[in-house]
Design a protein around this nucleic acid. Structure first.
Lengths: 343, 343
DNA sequence: TAAATAAATTTACGCGCGTAAAATTTAAGA
DNA sequence: TCTTAAATTTTACGCGCGTAAATTTATTTA
């Protein structure tokens, strides 16, 4: 590596023996220049360690290579995990991922989109907060930037939706629980922050009725994203009142189930499949920590990689074609039953 | 709000009745212009919704308002939590946080720094991977950009270190466990990815010896960041062999403890303080999930907010003064005992 | 009220790169 | 070898803003 510092593309073009506009073209798309030219540039690149100024590039490019990723709550390992998959795919597509978390706050969600606007992203992958989201502000954003909505569906948000098939997943778990024991009660938050919760409740009620059973929905009080805490507190209340309509409890999501299991443990109630167990508990999401609950949590997994892949593919297609989809279509991926010890 | 679109600072200066260089100065620092001028600009701002082009700004500014935050593993809620605190502080200091995760991969850690370099950050807050980090590459980066090292200390990385007082925290927990029961064995990873682990082991051994007890270190095989899994697998092995030298186990960190507790549960071993319990287990970190283990985990909390605040203050001081510290100094904040049910 | 100081304006240039148009060279095919 | 299309080079301009120097205007102090 030469010690002479290259200050700009002009100088780099000089040392590589190629004109600056062609070098510019190379950095825009290496495949767009002749193989012999590409080689010359790449040889010079190894010698001189030059990199185009990202600000000057983006100032003039009609389309930046920035791609925003907004998740509702990054401290939730569930979202951290899916964000990571998406980041990897975005990088290998040659884009620069900008990961932002809304931290459960609708105002911050809009601020994040606002902040993204200022870096002219080529596209955005948005997992909205849901119920509390400022839908009008988000829609305004989506008119400016090609956006794909994932995880939590909000009508009108983004050109497409990619998510988890809550209906199929709920039905599958219900079938399993009923077949191997008894029809479960459904434990959920009274005001769930996420719209998936509503889909799951609806699917629970409808499937139960179709199966000829009476649905029992237990609603936990509490707001916000401290979901384990709500599951624990309300779980303890329900268990102490001994008011459960079924000895099987299907929690709306794993974080609620994690809290519920902790409450059961503390109450000395043995959960699981064994003869000495008095309760079965199931969750939904295959949360990273569901493998380490006591007992380990039976749950339904999202098809994370399919959702990540499809989301990225969809936004990339929009970016490349340069046009919006004629109609908003949604893709749902089926869940997978994860059988563990709790049910 | 007017419907006329403002395209650049020139046009915005025109509608606000102020010259463009003064407007530029305002955006650089609103306090640097006369109050009457500031008002005029802010009135126009409300009317016309203009925002300076961030790329054009950063291209010419000697110092951008970007501030990099690099954590080793964002899917760990521990790091997600501390990253969030730091982000908040950075934003309120008027900077734009760029959060990147190394995902446990040393190559990605260097790539992250490399990527930050291209956006000319004013400073960087780096929590390095630790043992596997490419120290030489990181040091090279630190010579270019004012960097503060936090969480895991690596000599030579950054101008300062801010972290947790592992020695004090370990000693405090040891004192508690010994006073209320018996001296614990120490459960850790054989090849811990994080240097804090080494500090904790050393503190354990030294304190035990000072107290007149024989230290017992149990080392779990296994590499990488799937720490709960390692704690579970190796915990199960240790418990099945019935080879524990003490009925109290002090885990090097909470994630290991979470796995260990799951193993104890599965082995039917009752953990806690009650008369019917045969084992006490303690952790270290006050991981967000340590409140929901079975039983709830007794642990030591970092002083998260102090660490975040001091880290941000330190890097801000470096940025403002424009000079590097004459010597690298480290600040350690004491831990706090979190007494729960497991010990 | 004049002088001293601070702030704002005018003028002018540069940052590093994208990109368009026209001229030229290169590679591929008949 | 000639034709043709593709790739490259030359030339030239613009993006939106930072910033320096000189000048003018406003505010504060004596």
């Amino acid at each position: 590596m030469s010690d002479r510092k290259i200050r700009n593309m002009e100088e780099f073009a000089a040392v590589s023996g190629i004109s600056r506009p062609t070098v510019s073209k190379y950095f825009n798309d290496p495949a767009s220049v002749r193989a012999s030219t590409r080689e010359k540039i790449e040889t010079a690149l190894k010698e001189h360690d030059y990199r185009p100024n990202i600000f000057a590039m983006n100032q003039n490019r009609k389309l930046t290579k920035n791609l925003g990723i907004v998740v509702p709550y990054l401290a939730d390992p569930f979202f951290a995990g899916i964000a990571r998959r998406i980041e990897d795919l975005v990088i290998s597509a040659g884009f620069r991922p900008i990961l932002l978390s809304s931290h459960g706050d609708a105002k911050l969600e809009v601020e994040n989109l606002d902040s993204l606007l200022s870096i002219k992203p080529a596209g955005v992958l948005l997992a909205p907060l849901g119920r509390i989201s400022d839908t009008a502000a988000i829609e305004r954003f989506c008119r400016e930037v090609p956006t794909v909505n994932f995880d939590a569906n909000i009508d009108g948000v983004g050109e497409a939706f990619v998510g988890h098939n809550n209906a199929q997943a709920t039905e599958m778990m219900l079938e399993y629980l009923t077949r191997t024991g008894e029809p479960p009660a459904f434990f959920e938050m009274k005001s769930p922050p996420n719209p998936n919760a509503n889909k799951r409740r609806t699917a629970y009620v409808e499937t139960m009725e179709r199966m000829g059973h009476t649905p029992h929905v237990i609603q936990a009080e509490g707001e916000g994203w401290d979901i384990e805490e709500i599951g624990f507190r309300e779980g303890a209340r329900v268990l102490s009142q001994d008011s459960l309509p079924s000895r099987t409890v299907f929690c709306s999501n794993d974080r609620l189930a994690i809290g519920f299991l902790a409450a059961a443990y503390e109450a000395g109630i043995k959960v699981g499949l064994g003869d000495d167990c008095v309760l079965r508990v199931a969750g939904h999401d295959n949360h990273p920590f569901s493998r380490y609950t006591c007992p380990t949590l039976t749950t339904v997994s999202h098809n994370y990689s399919a959702i990540a892949t499809k989301s990225v593919e969809t936004v990339m297609a929009m970016i490349e074609s340069g046009e919006r989809a004629p109609e908003r279509n949604s893709t749902l991926f089926d869940g997978e039953l994860i059988m563990r010890a709790s049910a």
